[in-house]
Design a protein around this nucleic acid. Structure first.
Length: 801
RNA sequence: GCCGAAGUGGUGGAAUUGGUAGACACGCUAGCUUGAGGGGUUAGUGAGCGAAAGCUCGUGCGGGUUCAAGUCCCGCUUUCGGCACCA
């Protein structure tokens, strides 16, 4: 037994006992289950502060739920495929596999030193065949359901290194290693039809217990908009250009049509026209990232092609515009400079006609709001809503367009020209792709020669020769595929015979998912899609993967996200070694509420450590007194009991509904400060001892989810030795919170002029006359007439003079 | 550019439903304690005026609603996250 607070010794001892008991390995049983999942890490080498925060939050909630008699499953695994392993392989001449597995070992040791209550018997690594073979099976099943197809898609091409670059590897339009001007290139790739689920992904958001901002971001990302598809006949041709618009009411304002540089028509034109060809290659000198495209200067090229306006029959010029994306809609935009900001800027730049066809109070162009139609022939005078209806009717009657619901969401391109990923299970027989069947799986990663970089595969030879006329696909899956279903695999991670075990239905869906806000869209949307598709394959039972979502803010240093590339990382391990896991956990939970970003500060860690020492000094060598509560308590003793119970009530609420661990800790600190020194003394009365023991029980229990080591040690080594600290969560006694008096704040014209204690028995009139006796109140009112009195029960009385 | 957040003392943050702005900490200042270092402990700590009582100002900026606004509304600004191949 140790006398002084020595976290290093104490934490090792406690962790060893958890491990020996297999305390956090769980089975399905008849209790209510709670599946608590924190986003699994990419094994970059070392734990960073964001991990520590994420996993502490998850562990605190898991431990709290466990104390409330839930059957809690908290697993952990590794998002082990990805680009950094290839980069490290090239830089250090190690295989991505070796590098990754070594990192996992290091990080696992670190995680264990944090005292996280994981069920390690269900650990999984996405780079294990035992994991990714099932992913290959899912791909095959998705394909059988018609969710898989192949089409051309753009990538960033580095012409010097002859390789495809990720957006991250393109800096100011140049390859990060070669420095070469990258270009957009189209290659054949596999796609998943996430758009088949667009409607459900949108509508089921409403029922999710997720933060509103995340739901809004997903809603906007899916981007359902209603409008019309309008056909513009090409002059001297039987073909049409079809454009989607949400504003058919502005059709009389169309003064140009813009097509994407990737549109087939642009490609065809370039074959016969060198300046168009030059223009197109100029458009390709930007990265494929949408943000870069949006920021790029709007470029346009006027072709000789003209189309016929479907109503006025006027001729409209066709432009090629680099701001038009082929992926959205049809790759054709009807340009209405009078009523669209981007079209307006484009028209100004290229001196294209600007027509106003909607009238509003403020007529400064572009007019973006809806209003009354002008300059629109037979539709003049209608409001936008009516006009939209009538114009669509007109177009439909003349077979020149129709009403259409459009989504911004695009299908998911899952091919990656990388080595270190899940192999796509496809072979090409005489050039024809064939998806492999279940009995042909798994397709394993090709073995690398020792010390050879994993690179040749990312060159333009994306096939592995198997026989004379059979090639194997060498592309791998997007790593988002790996993370889109891992949560479902966890309950059966140790089952090598089936993707999901019987228990999966007991544990799924995840009750609480915790992770960074940066995943608000992509990862969370892809997982939702996977879950719904798996449901339709009868592989899971629920409609959504994550019932509740907690998005934690980032850990910042000097106002920026801690990241290797920014060079502002702080290594958590040195702090764990110096102060102990409990201190780091306490610091993380105390410094900011989970959703907010957290600015790293070393001196506050010191403060957390000091608080734990205070707890230690109060409780170490204190023995529970086993007294019953039949005392006649003094006012002071009752005050302490009231404080203890009020604190417990507040903290329970903070854990249960608010996830406000920072204020929970603050309240516990207040309670600790509230205990009078003489009560702690050996010479204290039995009643006083009782009150302190009660406070100590509450304090240890309330802190134990956050600082599990020190609280368990104090509890069983000193205080009560015949009961587990986490066996139950205490309940407060509401009767003790009853008070006879309250403090009222007296305001005059909304400004505080005094406070006083009022007995609960007084009525409003009596309170009014009592507070008017306060000197500062009466002197401020003086001769002024009281116009109005506002009384807020047991809080505030405000005199308006 | 588009979508989503955030901005409160020297610092992290609190104010849960429109009702006392600054809880709880960190830091700082002073006193006590200690051989030193460290630690512990007591008091003070938004700004300005005042001996004090108290008064005025104060939650990114500008306006508005209200008896009352950090909180609601309108406009702006800065910072952060995401933008489909970083994970």
């Amino acid at each position: 037994m140790i006398k002084r607070y020595q976290p290093d010794l104490l934490e090792k001892e406690i962790q060893a006992s958890w491990e020996e008991q297999k305390k956090y390995e769980v089975q399905a049983d008849d209790r209510e289950k709670f599946y608590c999942l924190s986003m699994f890490p990419y094994p970059s080498g070392k734990l960073h502060m964001g991990h520590v925060r994420n996993y502490t939050i998850g562990d605190v909630i898991s431990r709290y739920k466990r104390m409330n008699n839930f059957n809690v499953f908290q697993p952990m695994g590794w998002d082990a495929f990805g680009l950094p392993a290839e980069n490290a392989a090239i830089a250090n001449k190690v295989s991505p596999d070796e590098w990754t597995r070594e990192n996992i070992e290091n990080m696992k040791t670190q995680l264990k030193s944090l005292g996280l209550s994981y069920d390690w018997s269900k650990e999984l690594k996405t780079c294990d065949t035992s994991y990714y073979k099932w992913e290959q099976l899912i791909f095959k099943k998705f394909a059988d359901k018609g969710l898989v197809y192949r089409k051309k898609a753009v990538v960033n091409w580095d012409p010097v290194d002859n390789t495809v670059l990720a957006n991250e590897q393109v800096i100011d339009g140049k390859g990060w290693r070669s420095g070469a001007q990258i270009e957009i290139k189209e290659i054949d790739q596999w796609f998943l039809k996430i758009t088949d689920y667009a409607d459900e992904l949108l509508s089921s958001l409403d029922d999710l217990d997720w933060p509103e901002n995340v739901k809004t971001m997903q809603k906007n990302w899916i981007g359902k908009s209603s409008g019309a598809e309008i056909k513009y006949k090409i002059e001297d041709s039987d073909n049409y250009l079809t454009a989607f618009t949400t504003r058919p009411d502005t059709i009389f304002g169309v003064s140009f049509i813009a097509i994407s540089p990737n549109h087939q028509m642009a490609t065809d034109l370039a074959k016969e026209n060198d300046s168009i060809k030059k223009f197109l290659s100029q458009c390709k000198e930007t990265s494929a990232a949408e943000a870069d495209m949006a920021k790029a200067e709007k470029l346009g090229f006027k072709t000789d092609i003209k189309v016929i306006h479907p109503i006025t029959k006027e001729l409209i010029p066709v432009w090629i515009g680099n701001f038009v994306l082929l992926d959205y809609g049809t790759g054709v935009v009807m340009g209405v400079p009078g009523h669209d900001q981007r079209d307006y800027e484009f028209a100004k730049k290229y001196k294209i006609e600007i027509n106003q066809v909607i009238k509003t109070e403020d007529n400064e162009l572009p007019v973006l709001e809806k209003g009354l139609l002008i300059n629109s022939n037979q539709f003049n005078g209608m409001n936008s809503a009516d006009a939209i209806k009538r114009i669509i009717e007109y177009l439909q009657e003349n077979d020149l367009g129709q009403e259409l619901i459009q989504f911004r969401l695009r299908d998911w391109g899952i091919s990656r020209q990388r080595y270190w990923g899940c192999p796509i299970p496809v072979v090409y027989e005489d050039g024809t792709p064939r998806l492999l069947n279940e009995n042909e799986l798994p397709v394993e990663l090709p073995k690398l020669e020792k010390n050879s970089p994993p690179l040749p595969l990312s060159k333009n030879e994306n096939f592995i020769k198997i026989s004379e006329n059979v090639l194997r696909e060498a592309d791998t899956f997007d790593t988002f595929m790996d993370s889109s279903w891992y949560y479902a695999r966890f309950p059966s991670a140790d089952n090598n015979d089936a993707i999901f075990s019987k228990d999966s239905d007991y544990w799924l869906p995840v009750d609480l998912y915790i992770g960074g806000i940066e995943h608000a869209i992509l990862h969370l949307l892809y997982s939702r899609f996977f879950h719904k598709a798996l449901r339709d394959l009868d592989m899971v039972k629920s409609d959504e993967p994550f019932k509740k979502l907690l998005t934690q803010g980032m850990v910042l240093k000097d106002g920026a996200k801690m990241s290797k590339s920014k060079g502002n990382t702080v290594d958590p391990q040195s702090y764990i070694d110096k102060y102990g896991a409990d201190t780091i956990r306490l610091y993380m939970m105390f410094t900011a509420p989970p959703e907010q970003s957290l600015e790293w500060s070393e001196s506050s860690v010191e403060g957390a450590s000091r608080f734990l020492k205070k707890i230690w000094n109060l409780i170490a060598e204190r023995k529970y007194n086993e007294l019953s509560d039949d005392f006649k308590f003094t006012k002071e003793e009752l005050a302490l009991r009231r404080k203890s119970h009020a604190t417990l009530k507040k903290v329970t609420n903070d854990y249960e509904v608010r996830f406000a661990f920072n204020t929970a800790i603050a309240s516990v600190m207040e309670l600790l400060n509230f205990i009078p020194d003489e009560f702690k003394d050996d010479s204290a009365s039995d009643a006083q001892k009782f009150c302190v023991d009660e406070a100590v029980i509450f304090i240890l229990k309330m802190l134990s989810p956050i600082t599990p080591h020190i609280t368990e040690y104090l509890w069983c080594k000193f205080f009560i030795d015949d009961m587990d600290i986490d066996a139950w969560w205490p309940e407060h006694n509401e009767d003790l919170l009853e008070v006879q008096e309250f403090e009222i704040v007296v305001q005059i014209n909304g400004k505080v002029r005094g406070k006083t204690i009022i007995s609960k028995e007084l009525n409003e009139k009596e309170i009014e006359s009592k507070v008017l006796e306060i000197e500062n109140v009466s002197s401020t009112i003086a001769d002024n007439k009281i116009k109005k009195v506002i009384y807020i029960k047991e809080k505030i009385i405000n005199f308006v003079i």
